[in-house]
Each structure stands twice: as C-alpha cells, then as structure tokens.
C-alpha cells in the first residue's frame, strides 16, 4: 500500500463519521449525506498530495462538502425527509426518558434555521473553533459567535418551556 493510500485510509477512518453527521444536519437527509461524504472523500483522494496537514485537510473537506451540497441544491430542490434522520441510536437504551428528551431535542435542532444549525453542528460534531467555522462559512467571527449564542438560547428556552409544560401536566 502506498503512502498516499495509507493517508487516505487514515483520513477516511478519522473523519468519515463526523462528516456524515455534519452532512446529515446540513442536508436533512441520510441518503444525501452519504452521497455528499462519498463525493467529498473521492475529491480528497484526487487532491491527496496537497492534503498533508490534517487540520488543513479537515478545513478543505468541510469546504468541499458544503460546496458539493450547494451544487446538489442548485441541481434540484431537495425534498427533505426526516424519517431516516430520526432513526437514531439511543445512547442509553435503558433510560426511556433520555430517549424522549433526545428525540425532542433533535426535533428542535432540526427546526432551527439552517444559519444557526450549521455552525452548531460544526462546533459540536467536528469540534471546530469559532475561527474555523467563520472560515468554512465565510463569515466574521462575531457573526459566528452570535449565531452559536442564538442557536443555544433557542434550544435551551425550548427545553425550559417543555419542562414547564411537563410540570403543569403533572400538577
């Protein structure tokens, strides 16, 4: 196996899962996400010689995936389906409450505007810094900070309302 093959294998092993999760939240569809990840990594293979730095590779992959998604969106208006997205593994299958909360939270994340959802996914799933998100999304760092703040605020407020409603139902 050549050095190029080894580096590609390492890249696939390290980033495919997170890229897929990000692509899922970006496109809202699991099948589309799979295609996006595949296309992105195939492009990475072609430009493997230029992707020596792992950090640069991650940024390059994210930019490429976003571009592929935009191209896909240009070609056809996707019919978003969430049936696949919601079929998720339960991190704690013994705790039905956790499962319900997670489902609820997932719904809320999906309901966020894409402008808020995307930086959140980049930060939480891929561990991107504000600067990296700003570069990927071609925004200022302040704009990214504002979007992250609003995204979390909306989700937390929703969580509080939901908890309040649950308490009222119990009383």
């Amino acid at each position: 196996m050549s050095a190029k093959h080894r580096r590609f294998d390492a890249l696939v092993g390290a980033l495919t899962d997170d890229l897929f999760r990000y692509a899922c939240w970006l496109s809202g569809d699991r099948n589309t996400a799979e295609d996006l990840v595949q296309e992105t990594l195939i492009r990475a293979w072609r430009f493997m010689d230029a992707l020596n730095d792992p950090d640069a590779a991650k940024a390059w992959l994210l930019t490429t995936l976003r571009r592929e998604h935009a191209r896909l969106y240009e070609r056809k208006q996707l019919n978003y389906t969430d049936s696949g997205l919601m079929t998720l593994a339960d991190p704690n299958p013994d705790d039905p409450e956790a499962h319900t909360e997670q489902h609820w939270l997932r719904e809320r994340i999906r309901a966020l505007p894409a402008d808020y959802r995307e930086p959140l996914a980049l930060q939480v799933i891929l561990g991107c810094s504000v600067r990296e998100i700003a570069q990927t999304m071609d925004l200022s760092e302040n704009a990214v900070m504002a979007r992250l703040f609003r995204a979390r605020k909306k989700l937390m407020q929703g969580l509080e309302h939901s908890a309040g409603a649950q308490l009222k139902r119990i009383r």
């Binding site: 696939v12 092993g13 495919t16 899962d17 897929f20 999760r21 899922c24 939240w25 699991r30 799979e34 990840v37 997205l85 079929t87 998720l88 593994a89 991190p91 956790a98 909360e101 997670q102 939270l105 997932r106 994340i109 959140l120 996914a121 939480v124 799933i125 979390r152 989700l155």
Partner: peptide, 16 residues
C-alpha cells in the same frame, strides 16, 4: 451532553 448526543446521528455500518 444532551446536545452532543442529539447531534450524534448514527453512521451507516458500511459507509467507510
């Protein structure tokens, strides 16, 4: 923690 778990969509087994 909840947010991380919610965003952690399961990956298809054969994707790699």
């Amino acid at each position: 923690k909840q947010l991380g778990a919610a965003l952690c969509v399961p990956v298809p087994d054969n994707l790699h």
